[in-house]
Design a protein around this nucleic acid. Structure first.
Length: 878
RNA sequence: GCGGACGUGGCGGAAUGGUAGACGCAAGGGACUUAAAAUCCCUUGGGAGUAAUCCCGUCCGGGUUCGAGUCCCGGCGUCCGCACCA
């Protein structure tokens, strides 16, 4: 039912919200000064991509951040709560292609529209610090930092394999390759080697991993995901001798990496990556091998293909010699499952103790020899067929290792081979490897930050001189042809070499947009500074972000890149710390039921009418009555049309109702199901609070605090202060659903108290009611700021509640003189006992044993012992 | 396959090892009203009983404990993340 705000007695959010937003804005109360002496608090929500409209996920995210910001402000902090735009990216270019609108025009129009929407939410943001990453005033500094990183060796240029779309002339991310074809063009994707720019994030693998332990205000889940992503493994780099007569160019050795040197005596074969130099060399002399390698390259990198791909190998004829036995020769294969960019791109295979090696050996008839025996198993009868043994045990079939534990065997092998040298180098070295790969930032696209380098035929790669920054994007570009518009621009890339003044070419690749979002939090601390990315004093005062809030989908890339970037900024003097985010909170998604018509089309919730309950729930098209199938509950998405537009909700119910509902019920880290009933409930509560405060405001209360309070007054005061204590704790711990429950409880208690009051309440009771009203309004202000201002004014205050301090708790009110404890007999609750708060155990025990219910439950038995847990419970054991 | 999280009424969910189901939603009954909306009051885990009260109950099976939704062991189920990483 659409709310009707026309009646006078009802709260009218449409009028009130606009009015208060204007007042806040005029008084500039959310602007943050960098010289504010109060303790700092930096709360930040992940900034949005300007897609054109905000969605409910934004509403949830920004509401949570706003609650924290308003609470911390009331607690006396200088709060930094800024907003900006992650404004570069592909959708703008797609819009340019599809709708013939310039990416810049499209992006800035979207920013304007979304800013208006965000402002209608009543967020306490410092808009003076607004930044957009597509603004040259922003990306100029990013280019400067790129050059600084280049200087200190954190940037490099190297070849890397990419998915190349031959029709669109672009590089595709793995998720843009669908069944081996480009997602837009449908053309078969090729693997290509391109020279690309990389940030050397792998320089920090160890540090990024170790520092995770200190991020104690991050979700365990995210830390674990990053840990796995970095993927540290300890092992041995080991050089196998090759039989030179079997190798294409008389190569004498092959280096492999293994985490299981203990299983060396179970080795059955060696395997190379198809990209391994030795494999490439062998292929030149063996057309069949070349064919096999070609086939491996066609294999996609997409998940589905990797999952279904069969392990395949090709015997090169090369023989490797076992490091502990010159007479033991192992066949060397090229295998499709060996990655060139991990370890050395070569392994030895021990089928008995590795799933993959076992499959491979079984397929190519190499059998297996178990070398680790499970505890309690007779080595003579221990056989492996299709399941490798991966757990701990004792070494067998391994000559001098027999009887050792895995750990000891690993150490022993390492020790022996480290001592042995060949060509002045040890045969083996202990080594740590990481899964984490360097961050490729080159993108062959227009709408991104230009990489500030120039390619000169004579001088090679030349950085753009700092005085020439920013390298700005040209506006006159076309999108009528595939490929990078910068590359085919008639003049932009033609420049003189800054070193030799000879003809040179500008780099036409732009940066990955993850670069833009890897330092925006630092820029917010002084977005006005023209001469440098950051003011060191400023950035060190504000960072790290005390509370960062955003979606779990950024658990790895964005958060890891930002951690790297902050370190790189530290190294180049742009920050004084390594970790950007001290506290992280990952919120759940906003989900909604899906609906499908008979013809299979998705139907928007706004067009669906629901009748019945439970299993009898039926949905029909509101317009025609046609039956609609109710589908699963899923993340709101345009493709499934199960979205609810925040604009519509705010227009109908106001921002406070939307904010309140987003915080109710579901714990913030879990998904929240958007329901019409839930919004209705929030709306009713907004109106109820307004009536309640109206009733309190109508009470004639004395201006000064009473010396004594009667029972009615005490009840009200206790309810208010208990709510205050609870809400304070739960906001600080981001348990917003519990805050909501406590505010309901407080409102219920005040309603009851007023209901019981006589027509003219006593002065002490009246004073207590006004006090409770003042507290209640300040408690719900972080969640519903507009309603809170309206109520605050109704209670006769001249100030803004948004600038009021958080109420003071009177701890005495939280302590009762008598206390009621549950009484159990043999663990079952049988009675309650009311005793003085400070009653001793003996007194409580005596009181309990005298209770009729206890005597009855004991049924003549004498109690063996009585457990008294102070302030908690009594248990009589018979 | 590996790693993680979770499993509580009709629903979303509360519950430092200490009264299971706070708070909200939905539902049923009632009041007000010519009527509706709005609002207010009552009931609402299951079972027995007129009632006081009692019994059962947090996915299943064990265990630890005076006491277990919570801790431990073994299952089942759901969700999420990662994955030819040597």
């Amino acid at each position: 039912m659409p709310p009707d705000s026309s009646k006078n007695e009802r709260y009218n959010p449409r009028a009130a919200e606009a009015r208060w937003q204007k007042t806040w804005d005029e008084r500039g109360i959310y602007a943050t000064k960098n010289d504010d002496p109060r303790p700092k608090y930096y709360v930040l929500e992940m900034f949005p991509y300007p897609s054109g409209r905000i969605h409910m996920g934004h509403v949830r995210n920004y509401t949570m951040g706003d609650v924290v910001a308003r609470f911390k402000r009331a607690m006396g902090n200088a709060v930094l709560h800024p907003m900006g735009w992650d404004a570069f990216g592909m959708p703008a270019e797609n819009a340019a292609i599809d709708r013939k609108v310039h990416p810049k025009t499209w992006t800035y129009a979207n920013i304007a529209a979304m800013k208006k929407q965000l402002q209608s939410m009543g967020l306490s943001l410092d808009w003076a610090r607004e930044i957009a990453t597509c603004d040259p005033a922003y990306y100029k500094h990013q280019q400067k930092m790129f050059l600084d990183f280049l200087k200190v060796g954190l940037v490099e240029r190297k070849q890397s394999k990419v998915n190349w779309d031959p029709v669109d002339h672009t590089v595709l991310a793995n998720e843009q390759v669908i069944d081996g074809r480009g997602w837009r063009s449908g053309a078969e994707v090729e693997q290509r080697e391109l020279t690309q720019w990389f940030f050397k994030i792998s320089d920090y693998s160890e540090d990024l991993l170790n520092a995770l332990d200190r991020l104690d205000r991050w979700p365990e889940k995210v830390r674990l995901m990053q840990k796995n992503w970095i993927g540290r493994s300890e092992g041995l780099a080991l050089r196998f001798m090759l039989d030179p007569d079997s190798t294409p160019n008389k190569e004498s050795e092959l280096e492999i990496f293994t985490t299981r040197p203990d299983t060396l005596f179970g080795a059955k074969f060696m395997a190379l990556s198809p990209d391994h130099p030795l494999a490439q060399a062998a292929a030149l002399k063996n057309p069949k091998l070349a064919e096999f390698i070609e086939a491996c390259k066609k294999m996609g990198t997409s998940q589905a293909e990797i999952d279904t791909a069969e392990k395949m190998g090709f015997d090169t004829g090369i023989k490797a010699i076992h490091p502990f036995d010159p007479n033991w020769k192992l066949p060397v294969y090229v295998a499709n499952f060996i990655l060139m960019d991990y370890g050395t791109g070569a392994i030895f295979g021990c089928p008995a103790h590795d799933q993959r090696d076992l499959e491979f050996a079984n397929k190519y008839g190499h059998g297996n020899t178990p070398v680790v025996c499970p505890p309690g198993q007779d080595p003579k009868t221990f056989v492996i067929t299709t399941t490798p043994f991966l757990d701990d045990g004792r070494m067998i079939n391994s000559r001098f290792l027999d009887g050792m534990t895995i750990e000891d065997a690993k150490a022993d092998v390492a020790k022996r081979l480290e001592k042995e040298t060949r060509g002045n180098r040890p045969v083996a070295q202990r080594q740590v490897n990481y899964r984490l790969r360097d961050w490729g930032i080159s993108r062959q696209r227009y709408w991104g930050c230009p990489i500030p380098v120039i390619h000169c035929e004579k001088c090679g790669v030349v950085p753009v001189p700092e005085k020439n920054l920013p390298v700005t994007l040209p506006d006159d570009v076309t999108f009528d042809k595939p490929g990078n518009p910068l590359d085919r621009h008639p003049t932009w890339k033609n420049v003189k070499c800054p070193q030799c003044a000879g003809p040179a070419r500008r780099e036409t690749d732009t940066m990955d947009t993850f670069v833009d979002s890897s330092w925006y939090f630092a820029r917010f601390t002084d977005p006005w500074l023209k001469t440098a990315p950051t003011d060191l004093k400023c950035v060190n005062e504000w960072l790290p972000v005390d509370q960062y809030i955003g979606g779990i989908e950024h658990a790895i890339l964005h958060l890891l890149y930002s951690r790297f970037f902050t370190r790189a900024m530290h190294k180049t003097g742009h920050t004084g710390m390594d970790e950007p985010f001290a506290g992280l909170f990952t919120q759940g998604m906003v989900v909604h039921e899906t609906y499908r018509s008979k013809s299979g089309d998705w139907v928007e919730p706004a067009n669906v009418k629901i009748d019945g309950l439970g299993d009898a729930r039926r949905a029909t098209l509101a317009a025609t009555g046609e039956a609609v199938e109710i589908g699963s509950i899923e993340k709101m998405s345009k493709s499934k049309k199960n979205t609810v537009d925040p604009d519509d909700i705010i227009a109908a119910y106001g921002a406070d109702t939307a904010r309140w509902f987003m915080l109710s019920d579901s714990p913030p880290e879990r998904d929240v199901i958007w329901t019409e009933e839930g919004v209705q409930g929030a709306w009713r509560f907004v109106q109820r609070l307004w009536r309640l405060i109206g009733e309190i405001a109508a009470v004639k209360a004395p201006a000064t605090r009473r010396a004594e309070f009667g029972p009615q007054a005490l009840t009200v005061r206790k309810a208010a202060h208990r709510a205050l204590a609870n809400v304070s704790e739960d906001i600080a711990r981001l348990r917003f659903n519990r805050c909501v429950a406590h505010i309901y409880e407080c409102a219920n208690a005040l309603s009851d108290a007023i209901g019981e009051a006589e027509s003219a309440p006593s002065p002490d009771f009246a004073w207590a009611l006004r006090e409770a009203g003042d507290i209640l309004v300040r408690l719900f202000h972080p969640m519903m700021p507009h309603l809170a201002e309206e109520c605050w004014a109704a209670l006769g205050h001249q100030t803004l509640v948004a600038t009021e301090a958080w109420p003071q708790i009177e701890p005495d009110l939280l302590v009762e003189n008598t206390i009621t404890l549950p009484v159990q007999v043999n663990g079952k609750k049988r009675a309650d006992v009311t005793v003085a708060r400070d009653a001793g155990k003996a007194d409580i025990e005596a009181a309990v044993l005298a209770l009729d219910a206890v005597i009855k439950a004991l049924d003549g038995k004498s109690p063996k012992k009585v457990i008294v847990v102070p302030q908690r419970i009594v248990n009589v054991v018979a």
